[in-house]
Design a protein around this nucleic acid. Structure first.
Lengths: 276, 276
DNA sequence: CTAATAGTGTCTATTAGACAGTATGTT
DNA sequence: AACATACTGTCTAATAGACACTATTAG
């Protein structure tokens, strides 16, 4: 059919002619948690941690899932995760990055739902409000094997495990696509979202400064190094690490003492002026 | 409201209670084109090129845009770009990767539309069918400045220019987010899609083997190098280039001769067995 | 022979990895 | 003094950049 003008076209256009579907966003909120050691002289052990919500309604009633919600028609797509984030943590102005959009036909039993996932990186110290009920931080550990990863989440009371299979994509790529191999405890396709986010963070850590979104204003280099280590899941050598981050941080006049050993100087993030 | 069972919940669930919105996908189809030189001894000059479609209806009537279409309710999200790709090029089994999901409230005058963009990489030699009418390949050139990029597309008859502004994201990242600064000729937010794709490809070229999706079965290393050069938009040094790709290709018994200079050996892509 | 690209050898500069050492706090 | 971490010096290995050279074809 041909129309004479855009106005005429739009007047004749009827959204009701199309099938119903909905868009939601899910947010992978990541942070770093400290585990206090029994021996007062040892430094605290760090973990990555993720904020999960226990579903109190169908579908997936009583399972854990990522915070998320329906997109409103009058709200930009990126506003949706910001709104949910504010609701769950009380924080705004935090680092947020789009991860991936999932849209298999049967991912939600209610109706056809397309879900865009986001990753948020926060510094837990900024959390002042109490967490909502049904909400809890889970420490993340992951064990990579040849073609799969086992991810273990725990919050002292409960443990959640899932396994992701890495399948080499057809054709010529060395990138993986993922499939859920085992999952008992998490709702929807959220294991995929969690693992996509971890992979993304692992990569990004090497060529961006995103980590500093998870750090407090002032920090010791040893702590910073530990954060890199838990994200990358491997030990780093001190001198190499310090060389690499040298131009990303600046020393302050403050020190952190009282831990039974040489006090560490406190640093702050310094934006690198020479952007190549 | 509380329900006794999942069945009961789903029975009471009414999709009609929610506002209408639609999901579309747009595909950035990239390939490499050769420009034959006047001097028979000079090798052909290569360009990246993108497939565009001229809109024959409102909105944006008579403007160029990326191929795309509405997601059907009974179709997985990734099936949608595959279907459109088949329709536009006659090809299936081609490299496809999700880029980004755009969802500003007013990106489409018809109704609320969320659009997931994909990037497809193809080897033009595989194209046997004639292109649809209203469809054309445009060569891509881009000029990067301090905080912006000028992208110029042309297909001999028409030239399309747009300018993207790179804004440093708030907070601590060195990644950019983009904004359209100038655009006369392209529909929707497609300049953003095109530039996101080019950036993605530029990065990926360094740590994956995606380029080989744009190469024929057999190719000369000089040609391969030129493809890297047009993607990265800079000259590479021969020895360095050959060192880097050495373990990604294998020499065949074939050569390419008849060009007024030393014939080049033909290589084929070789998957690297040691995946670290 | 000439123009043009194909392909290699090798030196240098830069960066990453490894290890051993010194420094300095608390109990 | 003992422990634990903070921080540095320096050697070595690996990688990237640069340049100059040799090789081989059609006309």
């Amino acid at each position: 059919m041909m129309y004479k003008s855009e106005e005429e076209f739009l007047k004749a256009y009827n959204p009701e002619d199309y099938d119903r579907l909905a868009v939601t966003t899910d947010i992978l909120i990541l942070s770093i948690s400290d585990e206090v050691q029994s021996n007062y002289r040892k430094s605290s052990k760090k973990h990555m941690s993720v904020l999960l919500v226990k579903r109190d309604d169908y579908p997936f009633k009583d399972k854990w899932c990522l915070p998320g919600g329906f997109l409103k028609v009058d709200e930009d797509l990126e506003e949706c995760p910001k709104r949910i984030l504010k609701q769950e943590t009380g924080l705004h102005d935090i680092y947020l990055e789009q991860l991936y959009t999932f849209g298999s036909v049967n991912r939600d039993p209610r109706m056809r739902i397309i879900s865009t996932s986001y990753m948020a990186l926060i510094d837990k110290n900024r959390l002042t409000d109490k967490l909502n009920e049904n909400t809890s931080w889970f420490n993340i550990k992951y064990f990579e094997e040849e073609n799969s990863v086992l991810v273990v989440l725990d919050n002292d009371k409960e443990q959640i495990k899932f396994k992701i299979k890495k399948e080499l994509k057809e054709l010529t790529t060395d990138r993986y696509k993922f499939k859920i191999e085992e999952n008992e405890d998490l709702a929807f396709d959220h294991p995929l979202v969690i693992w996509s986010g971890i992979e993304r963070l692992k990569n990004k850590v090497n060529y961006t400064d995103v980590v500093f979104n998870m750090m407090p204003e002032l920090f010791a280099l040893g702590d910073l190094q530990q954060v890199y280590e838990v994200i990358l899941n491997k030990k780093l050598l001190d001198p190499a690490f310090r060389r690499i981050i040298a131009n990303k941080v600046e020393k302050t006049e403050f020190v952190q003492s009282g831990a039974g050993h040489r006090p560490s100087a406190l640093f702050r993030y310094k934006k690198n002026e020479d952007t190549k």
